[in-house]
């Protein structure tokens, strides 16, 4: 191994450690007693590790309810979003139709609309029309993300041969049938990527739930943790344990589908 190589590995390893420190610190602090969290000088590993924080948040707080709301919202919106993005991506990739370029332009432009501009009027519109229902507000407006459609269009172009579509048409299959039985199965890798991307976005989203959810019984995980942290002077012990638990589902989803996510996310952007 050359000197240069050794330098590269050292630099990357150091950087990796830097990236991991906050996570390790969060996890180790979650096992510390309240009085030890702010012990000075701080210790990397707790002197007397305790599960008390985890017990307290699971028993004393509606943690399972927060988890349920977050997970359900994320699962439902992901299932619908993946379906709609595949369908629209297929439409843009494999058909010629009038106004196609203009419509695609509109789609791409919507990526440049800042979310912050629509939160106030959208919140008001939902309130006025009586649709400020948590499930509706957290799921429906976001089930056709432009980024996902863009990504699926690129993927369909690269991986679905026109001949297959022609053959299916000659066999008399309708267009939707072709989508379901010919195209969709070919999109598996990209579907994985889009699904994780969408799940994480929804599961971790904070600002929109903060605006539309007012009933503590319907809090999502991030809202629950925030409320807990905001109330009664920074309960770091409880919140840290809750954070560690909250991070587990997203980490599992990420690790299971990491390869598909990292490869699939970028497929649309490099060409």
């Amino acid at each position: 191994m050359t000197k240069q190589r050794a330098g590269l590995y050292t630099a990357l390893t150091l950087l990796a450690v830097l990236f991991l420190i906050p996570m390790i610190w969060g996890v180790s602090s979650a096992f510390k007693a309240r009085s030890d969290i702010f012990e000075y000088p701080p210790r990397l590993f707790p002197a007397e590790p305790t599960l008390e924080n985890f017990r307290a948040i699971l028993d004393g707080q509606p943690f399972w309810s927060w988890l349920l709301v977050s997970t359900l919202v994320a699962l439902v919106s992901t299932a619908v979003a993946v379906f709609l993005c595949c369908l629209a991506g297929f439409g843009f990739a494999k058909y010629q139709f009038r106004f196609k370029n203009a419509l695609f332009d509109v789609l791409i432009s919507s990526l440049a609309v800042p979310f912050a501009v629509i939160i106030v009027p959208l919140f008001i519109l939902l309130a006025v029309t009586g649709t400020l229902n948590v499930w509706f507000a957290l799921i429906v407006p976001w089930v056709a993300p432009a980024f996902g459609i863009f990504m699926m269009r690129q993927y369909v172009e690269q991986s679905v041969p026109d001949e297959l579509l022609h053959a299916a048409r000659i066999d008399g299959a309708g267009e939707f049938r072709i989508f379901l039985s010919v195209v969709l199965p070919l999109l598996r890798p990209a579907v994985g990527a889009l699904a994780v991307w969408n799940f994480l976005n929804s599961y971790n989203s904070f600002l929109w739930p903060l605006i539309v959810v007012s009933d503590p019984d319907q809090y999502t995980l991030p809202l629950g943790l925030q409320a807990l942290f905001g109330a009664e002077g920074r309960q770091y012990d409880l919140v840290l344990a809750g954070s560690v638990l909250a991070a587990i589902p997203s980490l599992i989803v990420f690790f299971v589908l990491r390869k598909q996510l990292l490869d699939g996310l970028t497929a649309g952007a490099v060409k």
């Binding site: 990236f19 906050p22 996570m23 610190w25 969060g26 602090s29 994480l200 599961y203 971790n204 904070f206 995980l221 991030p222 943790l225 925030q226 942290f229 770091y236 919140v239 840290l240 954070s243 909250a246 991070a247 997203s250 980490l251 990420f254």
Partner: peptide, 13 residues
């Protein structure tokens, strides 16, 4: 990994 974790968790730590 950092982008996978919820911002509230990250901000707390």
């Amino acid at each position: 990994v950092p982008v996978v974790i919820s911002p509230i968790v990250v901000a707390l730590v």
